[in-house]
Amino acid sequence: MQMTQTELENGTLKVTLTGPFDIAGAGDVDLPFSVIAGRAQKVIVDFTAVDFLASIGVRVLVKTAKPIDKRGGKMALFGVNEAARKVLSATGVDTLIPVVEDEASARAAVA
């Protein structure tokens, strides 16, 4: 799995993920997400090119969102396909991390 990070205005960090968020994918992005968890305040994650989400990916997302939330920051996901939405819904994680349609909505959700 590949990750790119883009600093947007207002201190928002956009994280773009590409590939399957499975065991291998989670291994690829666990460390960079830990760094993000330790410093970022507003994070939006672009899921448009994520074609598979397994529980280990959900684990990484929650592990990242927890310290951000603790500091009073916010994280939101956008561009999530139907299968990944089901995963986030079945685990209840979509009640803790907003899942929205597009980048503009995600930026608004963390503003």
Binding site: S55, V62, K66, T91
Partner: peptide, 24 residues
């Protein structure tokens, strides 16, 4: 079965896999 998540502060980071199998 996992208890419903209420907030990020108390949410655990594991146990999602078995939930997904049961739900899917």
């Amino acid at each position: 079965r996992a208890a419903p998540l209420t907030d990020l502060a108390t949410a655990g980071i594991g146990g999602f896999g078995i939930t997904l199998i049961r739900e899917t």
